[in-house]
Design a binder for these strands. Structure first.
Lengths: 207, 207
DNA sequence: GTTAGTGTACCGTCTGGTTGGTACAGTACC
DNA sequence: GGTACTGTACCAACCAGACGGTACACTAAC
């Protein structure tokens, strides 16, 4: 377990935040969650800030990888579409181990854990996120489509992320699907005007 | 000062978060910022959670009031447009007193202070926000325009809010203006296709 | 026997909250 | 109009627990 101890610890930290909120992210708690001693934890992460840094960097790297995977370069709007997909795609939880499903019922999902922890503890740890966004915004603006459209798609994605971060109700399902579809259509430059009336029943659009 | 002591304290707390981050929101610090003793603070707010609750509720109430002010009922999309305006409008800072501008340069603006504090300390304090969003989403979906469009505008607004919360770079100015304009146009049902090319110089669009 | 990795015990500080008070304005009663 | 009493607003000092971090002993592997 030594080689991936870091990952185990990061996953434990993320799980903890998702379950009990950022305030409960204490070294003791993380160590316990990862079934390790505090000493062991501090061997891998020199400080709490260091741990959160790891969380944030992992988050950014994962999202980057996800976008990279989804992106099929060549077509205009490909990167923007990949950004959308990476946001929407159900995040594959890294928590395969220890499935003690004692969900205490609040939103903060694993993906947002790093952000929450950084906001709670030390906003300057968000710097990697800020830097990533600079990069992402650059990519969006030079994606071969109208940068305004691309930016709106980005903002909507961020809105979905925000919603997840603070545990808002997800959009009701037919609407959610329609919104994502509409956003994706935006990235192709095709200005679809097919007004989907309130509560459309066509749930089975091609994925 | 006794009557508005609560407001003074809330403003002090918000200022503190904006300036030094949510972690620094301690009872001592808030009291000092408001030039009051901790005992005095605890007279008005029974606990730290109570203080944060006040912060969150004020935030929701302010936003609600802002939307209400901006909304001109009757025309389709009016509410959605008001939501957009309330988000974009430069928040009139309530901090008229004590203008010690020692901004230490990170994002968390006054508007987001309550959210940040709640995320950091006790996510369950976000319940009023969740409830408000249920209400808002209902209003958006019955605003006389395509609910998909309305929802996308909402999500983009939330994206802007999120951006502010974690202190991302604001959008470069011509783009920002264009995005807001495009979003507003969406709320009128008018599907504008005037593709503003990369970096448009026409900054002086009619407000 | 050296090194990577982990555990135990402990320390100092921070911080939320309590306690016991002060100052003072109002007011009811005689 | 003086006295007893109440409620509001605030303060200084203190406390107990939590928490980040340190020190160091131990062990398994090579």
């Amino acid at each position: 377990m030594s080689a991936n101890a870091r990952e185990t610890l990061l996953a434990a930290a993320a799980r903890l935040i998702a379950r009990e909120g950022a305030r409960r992210l204490t070294l003791d708690a993380v160590a316990a969650e990862a079934r390790l001693s505090k000493g062991g934890l501090l061997y891998h992460f020199a400080s709490k800030d260091d741990l959160i840094r790891g969380l944030v960097e992992t988050l950014v790297a994962q999202f980057d990888a996800e976008v990279e995977t989804n992106s099929v370069p060549g077509t205009p709007g490909a990167w923007t579409r990949a950004y959308l997909d990476a946001t929407v795609k159900p995040p594959v939880s890294r928590t395969d181990t220890q499935t003690t499903g004692e969900a205490s019922g609040h939103g903060t999902a694993l993906t947002s854990a790093g952000i929450a922890a950084a906001v709670a503890n030390n906003p300057s740890l968000l710097e990697p996120v800020r830097e990533a966004y600079r990069r992402w915004q650059r990519n969006l603006e030079s994606d071969g489509i109208d940068p305004i459209d691309a930016t709106i798609v980005r903002l909507a994605c961020d809105g979905l992320w925000f919603s997840d971060l603070i545990g808002l109700d997800p959009l009701p399902e037919p609407l959610n699907h329609a919104v994502v579809t509409r956003l994706r259509a935006t990235t192709t430059g095709a200005h679809v005007t097919e007004t989907v009336s309130i509560l459309p029943a066509d749930e089975n659009l091609p994925r």
